[in-house]
């Protein structure tokens, strides 16, 4: 195997293979979104090298993979804290406290949106609609875990859980 993929583990490559298998044999590029998530999960964020490794593995030009990585909001093109918290502040959430929940987290962590705590533990992001407005206020932990009804007590509990 070409050395450029070395930065991704065998386990990650096996996961990417499972994604590739979903699509017609001549459409490997279809797996790029999932593959970038797999790389991001493994590396913590997507460096140019990680994006290029995914592109090479799928037989795409690096710029084509970078276009995807930079188009979709949940790819992290810069390092983030151990826990990335994304708070939805869109209107339906805001009507039920989304903005206040974000303010509460900001105060607790002492950071604003797009900032990381000095200990590298938390990064805070402002999110757009996550499709769970009935559970407002809603936040995502590390992109994949959704938490609903996040009032002060629940936020305190979540922050305490993040070791």
């Amino acid at each position: 195997m070409n050395s450029q993929y070395n930065m991704l583990s065998q386990e990650a490559l096996a996961k990417i293979d499972r994604e590739v298998a979903k699509y017609p044999a001549d459409q490997k590029q279809s797996a790029v979104m999932a593959a970038l998530v797999i790389a991001q999960d493994e590396k913590g964020w997507l460096s140019q090298e990680a994006i290029a490794a995914v592109a090479g593995y799928l037989g795409m030009a690096p710029i084509a993979a970078y276009e995807v990585a930079s188009f979709y909001n949940m790819y992290d093109l810069h390092p983030v804290g151990k826990y990335k918290l994304t708070v939805c502040t869109n209107l339906p959430c805001a009507l039920s406290g989304g903005v206040h929940a974000a303010d509460y987290v900001k105060e607790k962590l002492g950071i604003d949106f797009d900032e990381t705590t000095p200990d590298g533990k938390f990064t805070l992001k402002e999110g757009e609609c996550m499709g769970a407005c009935g559970d407002a206020p809603v936040m995502l932990v590390n992109n994949k875990r959704m938490c609903g009804f996040m009032f002060p007590e629940e936020i305190d509990k979540l922050l305490a859980e993040c070791k």
């Binding site: 699509y23 590029q29 979104m33 998530v37 084509a64 276009e67 995807v68 949940m74």
Partner: peptide, 25 residues
């Protein structure tokens, strides 16, 4: 099969969604 998005409202537009399955913006 299932394909997931990764944070782009525009992919709810059906042809944007098809482009996205093809591995593009």
């Amino acid at each position: 099969f299932a394909h997931h998005g990764w944070g782009a409202y525009i992919c709810g537009e059906e042809t944007g969604l098809l482009e996205s399955i093809e591995g593009k913006k």
